[in-house]
């Protein structure tokens, strides 16, 4: 249930894409079972915060540079950027309310 509100980023456009505003990025892979669990939550956040934040995802198999740059050594990992600065890191599963609270802090 990939949502059209979640933008797929690549190594090539990642830096440019997180430069402005609040951007939540979901690092995932097709083989990662817990990633499939957090994906619908990320989708819901994307719709609920539509227009206020950017929600994006990075397939780590196809884009190895970005996870390496941010020292992502486990997935799912969510990173939250504000105007290009890394503000929050969430490793593993998380519930939607906690993620919403985390996003609200930066709005």
């Amino acid at each position: 249930m990939a949502s059209e509100n979640v933008k797929a980023l690549t190594d090539a456009d990642f830096g440019e894409s997180v430069k402005k505003g609040v951007v939540l990025v979901d690092f995932w892979a097709t083989w990662c079972a817990p990633c499939r669990r957090i994906a619908p939550i990320v989708d819901q956040l994307a719709s609920e915060y539509h227009g206020r934040i950017t929600v994006a995802k990075v397939d780590i198999d196809e884009n190895p540079m970005t996870p390496s740059k941010f020292m992502v050594r486990g997935i799912p990992t969510l990173l939250l950027f504000k105007d290009g600065d890394l503000k929050e890191t969430v490793v593993g599963l998380a519930n939607k309310d906690d993620l919403a609270k985390m996003i609200d802090k930066h709005l």
Partner: peptide
């Protein structure tokens, strides 16, 4: 956690 310490090899072994 997520920086080299993991409880899930199938999730994080890739790295």
């Amino acid at each position: 956690s997520g920086r080299g310490v993991s409880t899930c090899a199938t999730c994080d072994g890739f790295f």
